[in-house]
Design a protein around this nucleic acid. Structure first.
Lengths: 132, 132
DNA sequence: TCAATTGCGTTATGCTATAACGTGTGCGAT
DNA sequence: ATCGCACACGTTATAGCATAACGCAATTGA
């Protein structure tokens, strides 16, 4: 998917996520944008919906938060599944892609005639720094 | 982990999940147990916490719901990661395990010195029946 | 006996997400 | 040109998910 011009709200939300060092919840984003005129959750959710659709933002289901894509210049859809390692201490997220895992999962799904549409792979734990 | 005797509330919640054909949200479970004296969400969540700890129930992060483990007589922890295929039409869930995927993910995490604790692998889409 | 643990019940609250309504703007087709 | 449509936006209200904080009762082990 080619990313169209972002609207003002979309840009504001995207910038907040890009500058953040860790995933943010929709309400945290809202708070960070109050000075820019944001008043209601829907303003954030609507922007996020589009950013997710464009593939420039990911949603982390296990922590109800959002991160900017770590590989903005590639096309996330093209390298299949995306996986995340989320540090429960510092909040940092590592994003990675592995074709082997993709194929393995997809083969199993195919064998079940299951038609995959969206996937979530999230590992929670502690990063090198925090595990020490 | 060996599963201790379940308390009354834990048994009630577990039974509801076992009989359900699809994952249930905590509040749906609560509604199903009102006749048995349940009044508050915490009664459900506390039971669920224990059942999750014992490994007899799984939480589906992407749909905020819970399912009974499909392999109750094995030890889910022993076969590593658990993955789910969730049909968005009929709600049915297929649970599966794949050592290959496990190893691949774990190797990557190890290379990053990331210490994994909990994992979530969920694929949403349409099952054979519903995809037709 | 006393302290610690665990389960339970209740009330209140907080966090996450969407429904439903209306406004304005741009743009292509008739 | 103007009508209809698609889309972004703003607001209020509400729905859905989860936990904090309090207190009580039963169990266990020192």
């Amino acid at each position: 998917m080619t990313t169209p011009m972002l609207t003002k709200n979309q840009s504001l939300v995207f910038d907040v996520l890009t500058k953040a060092e860790a995933p943010l919840s929709a309400y945290t984003i809202l708070d960070k944008l109050r000075d820019q005129g944001f008043r209601a959750p829907l303003q954030v959710y609507r922007a996020l919906d589009k950013l997710l659709e464009y593939g420039v933002v990911h949603r982390l289901e296990s922590i109800n938060s959002f991160v900017a894509c770590a590989h903005p210049h590639e096309d996330c859809h093209s390298h299949g599944l995306v996986a995340f390692a989320i540090c429960e201490s510092c909040g940092q997220v590592m994003e990675f892609h592995d074709h082997e895992v993709d194929h393995r999962l997809m083969d199993w799904l195919k064998s079940q005639k299951f038609k995959a549409e969206k996937s979530t792979i999230e590992i929670r734990g502690h990063c090198a720094k925090c595990a020490a």
